[in-house]
Simulated scan of single mutants.
Amino acid sequence: MESWGWWLIAAGALVVGELFAGDFVLLMLAAGAAAAGLTGAVFGFGIVGEALVFAVVSALALFFGRPWIKSRFYRTSHQVKIGVSTILGSEAVVVEHIDAESGQVNLSGELWRARPYDAARSYEPGERVRVIEVDGATVLVGRD
């Protein structure tokens, strides 16, 4: 088998490796190997020319292509809230008198045990409060 064929096999292996790695480095090296294999097959470059094409294309892909691809895949502007972070800051309606001992709020249609964030405060049914902290299955609430 000629050298360009080995470059194409290496490109395929690098793509498979990227499926397990997921950091886009192997994908950029695969692009370099594919470019080396194709230029060797089309233009008849020898192993030295193919290695040079591999080095140049891989370097360009790593320094320019990888950051662009990562920015597309790992955008931070659309972070999904999960767990406790979904209710922090939410508005709730007091259902049962809240003091330092007990209380209950309706939070997005669910009943939660509640205590005041400031232990000296108390809230009456019907008042609107905001979730400041979560302590296990109890929300600590307060006013804005």
Rank of each mutant, 00 (worst) to 15 (best):
S90G: 12
R66Y: 06
G89A: 01
Y117D: 14
A33F: 02
G65S: 06
G126C: 00
G5R: 00
V53A: 02
A34F: 11
V25S: 13
L8R: 05
S71Q: 10
V139E: 04
F54D: 04
V16A: 15
F24K: 00
T86D: 02
R121G: 00
G17Q: 12
H97A: 04
G109F: 00
Q79I: 14
A34P: 07
Q104C: 04
A11N: 10
D144E: 11
H78S: 13
R130M: 07
S108Q: 14
A34M: 08
G5L: 06
A33L: 00
R128G: 01
F20A: 02
E110S: 14
S71L: 00
R66M: 10
R66L: 05
V134H: 08
G126A: 10
R66H: 09
V95K: 00
A119N: 08
S77E: 12
A30M: 10
E124T: 11
G37S: 11
M28L: 08
A61M: 09
K70F: 01
A30D: 07
G5A: 01
I9T: 08
V94I: 10
A35W: 10
F20D: 00
V141F: 06
L29M: 15
I82M: 10
S58F: 13
S3P: 15
E18P: 03
G40M: 04
F63W: 09
S90R: 14
E124Q: 05
E127C: 05
R130W: 09
L107F: 03
S85V: 06
R75S: 11
P116V: 03
L26K: 01
E110K: 11
G136H: 02
G136Q: 05
E127T: 05
S108C: 01
P116M: 02
V56M: 08
G89D: 04
I69S: 01
G22H: 11
T76K: 10
G109I: 01
S85E: 15
A59Q: 01
